[in-house]
Amino acid sequence: MDLEETPLPGIGLRHDFSTRSGRRLGVVSRHDGRRDLVIYDAEDPDASRESITLTPEEGDVLSELLGAPHIVQRLADISRAFAGLVGEQIEIAAGSPYADRLLAATQARTRTGASIVAVVRDHQVLASPRPDFRFRAGDIVVVVGTPENTAAVGRLLRDG
């Protein structure tokens, strides 16, 4: 597929390509974050027949709809490539010895071999938490490792 990129001075960038069925499609990315979905006229290839302006949110939704199967496919590929690894989500319970303590204090990687790759707090994903990250009760810790290793992290965070 031949994707053409054209700068639009003062407005943004235009990408367009021809589909296998012979229609031409384009997206204008404006500096302010809006997107225009452009469908070219079959008769006059210079002109757009339809041009639909999307807000940044609408653009995100559309790209998710168009890209979703793609992302699932990609994730499946990744887990196949790293066969034997699992991702585990472990909640810091209210009585956990590590609630209100630093991530470094768990020594999780040294003691279990698994890595803490992210923490979910208040529905927000905090990727790659640093050693000085302080856990709170209710945090969900995302751990990657072999099944045995991640289970060991679960015990560690529950019982110390």
Partner: peptide
């Protein structure tokens, strides 16, 4: 007019530039 995607638009814009 929904002509931002048109192929003559970059020409118009570069004249303005």
């Amino acid at each position: 007019l929904g002509r931002l995607g048109n192929r003559e638009t970059p020409v118009v814009l570069s004249v303005l530039v």
